[in-house]
């Protein structure tokens, strides 16, 4: 993947498949360390499944027997000296508090650091494909904070879908503005 934002788009599809209704994507950069956290309230995974997810020969897809999403994110993190950690609570084990947390850390000063890339396009793509899900997105560095919570948007929009063209255009503007209006 050329951008971490593409890994993020890809990994978030797993939360969608897990039936999540709320997905939180957080990027926090501090002292040369970028921490990516994707938290969902989907069906979670059993301990056995959790052990196999970093194996490229484990996948939930049915068209072929290889799943590269998690291994590619792990590679992107570990090639900078970072880490990948996945914790999960299966719905079968806890019907009220289930879901999965994927956390990756990156050394942003490492020569093999993949640039974060276009997070605006990733968020737009998520909303376009799965407007029924709520997303909380934050990206914080020492220079800027970008935030969006679709639950607040939905409160205003009522039954207008998050993937209505005008809404997507608004989302792009809303996020781009936050990225562009950096303090001097």
């Amino acid at each position: 993947m050329k951008e971490l934002s593409l890994n993020i788009l890809d990994i978030t599809q797993n939360s969608v498949t897990a039936g999540a209704t709320l997905i939180e994507i957080a990027l926090v950069e501090e002292d040369g360390v970028l921490t990516l956290t994707i938290t969902d309230n989907g069906c979670g995974m059993s301990r056995e499944t959790l052990k196999t997810v970093t194996d490229p020969f484990y996948t939930t897809r049915t068209t072929r027997k290889v799943g590269m999403g998690i291994p590619l994110l792990q590679l992107a993190a570990e090639q900078t000296g970072g880490t990948l950690q996945i914790t999960s609570v299966a719905a079968a084990d806890d019907p009220l508090q289930h879901g999965t947390v994927v956390r990756a850390t990156f050394d942003t000063r490492h020569i093999d650091m993949t640039p974060v890339g276009d997070m605006v396009a990733t968020i737009e793509t998520l909303l376009q494909g799965h407007p029924e899900i709520d997303y909380v997105f934050t990206h914080k560095t020492s220079d800027f904070t970008v935030e969006m919570d679709t639950r607040q948007m939905r409160a205003v929009l009522g039954d207008v879908a998050l993937n209505a063209p005008d809404v997507l255009i608004w989302v792009r503007g809303y996020l781009s503005e936050q990225y562009e209006h950096l303090p001097e």
């Binding site: 788009l9 890809d10 599809q13 897809r61 590269m68 793509t125 376009q128 494909g129 063209p165």
Partner: peptide, 22 residues
């Protein structure tokens, strides 16, 4: 939009369709 599609550049293709259709 699976891993293979995204890695090959599906995100800008999707955006282009959404924009051009609109």
């Amino acid at each position: 939009m699976a891993t293979c599609g995204i890695a090959a550049g599906a995100r800008p293709v999707l955006s282009a369709f959404v924009e051009a259709v609109n």
